[in-house]
């Protein structure tokens, strides 16, 4: 039995410790917002925050997440929420499948860097593939979120 803390809630589950976190989240706990895209840590669809660091949950074993705070797309954080609003305002998603991973990656960026440059954004988002090609809007939505935050602060 392992206990995972996801979006502030504890889940005790009976899984092998080497099961990738992704499948524990999706198939055992039943939170399906985190997506399977490649299984090799290549596409970023499965990104979650582990103690505020972005990880590809498809290659992280459950054992590595024990005792840590896991944030998925179903959870909330200040930056995630603001980014989600910008995402909607700029109509970023096309098919929408990769967007949870994109939003988690962007959240991790803004958590660490309040005023990212284009280059910072490119570096932070390089691990996330969008086959529909929404990158330009993702970049704009991150900038827009920063602008809104700066206006309010």
């Amino acid at each position: 039995m392992v206990t995972l803390r996801i979006n502030g809630e504890k889940h005790t589950i009976d899984v092998a410790p080497d099961m990738p976190l992704l499948w524990a989240i999706r198939d055992i706990i039943g939170l399906t917002g985190t997506k399977y895209g490649c299984g090799k840590g290549l596409c970023g669809s499965c990104k979650v925050l582990l103690d505020n660091s972005p990880v590809q949950s498809c290659v992280i074993p459950v054992s590595a997440a024990i005792g840590k705070n896991i944030l998925t797309i179903e959870g909330t954080s200040e930056n995630l929420q603001l980014l989600q609003e910008s995402w909607v305002t700029l109509n970023v998603p096309q098919c929408g499948f990769c967007q949870p991973g994109q939003l988690i990656a962007a959240t991790a960026l803004l958590d660490k860097n309040e005023n990212p440059t284009d280059k910072d954004i490119e570096e932070a988002m390089i691990g996330n593939i969008c086959r529909c090609g929404t990158y330009q809007r993702i970049k704009k939505a991150i900038h827009k979120t920063v602008e809104l935050k700066n206006q309010h602060s």
Partner: peptide
């Protein structure tokens, strides 16, 4: 017009 499903997409609620 923004996507009628945009909110669901960004919250991980759209069921694929």
């Amino acid at each position: 017009l923004r996507s009628i499903d945009a909110e669901d997409y960004v919250k991980g609620k759209a069921i694929f």
